[in-house]
Design a protein around this nucleic acid. Structure first.
Lengths: 122, 122
DNA sequence: TAGTTATATGAGCATTTATTCAAGTGTTTT
DNA sequence: AAAACACTTGAATAAATGCTCATATAACTA
């Protein structure tokens, strides 16, 4: 939101390619959309969270089960589940003392798959 | 690779849900795949890089043009292009002094789209 | 050859982030 | 009621990260 109008030096290219740059500028989505998109991918950009998401894609699980599965502390898992929930990727359900987490929808799987396609094609 | 065998306390859940946890464990991809996947998404998880990728999806561009388009220094753009190249998302082509960058393939667009589907559905 | 242009790179700095630790909440069990 | 249990939360810390600044490189130009 804090648009900057600093002293980015222009070069000859900018003049030569002015039309191209302007065309691209017009086609770019609004700053906010791209920021949100980056925020979403940032959530996927951590191996702990990726592993949690993958696990939840297989089955609904409680915090302590995920902790044992990934061999990490409950606290660490709980912190990351919070991030995942804020990103609207997981939801939870209370069953007595236990809190069960699951995926909100199946987008996660599709995003995974796209990523894997890229990785497996190098 | 450095597998940890620390003192993650087991709870009653782990015993009750032992079968589920083991099933999920068996289905989980190898640690390395998920790590690579996280690394890929980490690259997408920055708004500068997302904006560069989006721009390159519209047109092949040189470093200084991208810098002007995004109103950032050439140095900052160059650093990020390096990250994108290491992730095998962009390639470059030298034309005299000028270095032109473009997308390696169209996976980027597909990964974008999956992300946008999720964002637009809250 | 000297100077300019376009880009790359390394060090430094400020910010973000993932985990740990300690303490707190709410539920169940004894 | 007290203790145990599953989980959450906030502060602290170490590591990672993005940008800036100065400098280096490589190609073009005068």
């Amino acid at each position: 939101m804090t648009e900057k109008f600093n002293s980015i030096e222009r070069c000859d290219c900018n003049v030569i390619h002015e039309d191209i740059v302007n065309q691209v500028r017009d086609k770019m989505p609004q700053e906010e959309s791209l920021y949100d998109l980056a925020e979403l991918f940032k959530v996927f950009g951590d191996s702990t969270r990726i592993r949690i998401l993958w696990a939840l894609h297989e089955a609904e699980m409680c915090v302590c089960d995920i902790a044992v599965l990934l061999n990490m502390t409950q606290s660490a898992i709980s912190h990351q589940l919070r991030v995942l929930k804020q990103a609207n990727l997981v939801k939870n359900r209370k069953e007595g003392k236990v809190v069960c987490y699951s995926l909100v929808d199946d987008h996660v799987r599709e995003i995974f798959d796209q990523g894997l396609i890229h990785i497996n094609e190098k």
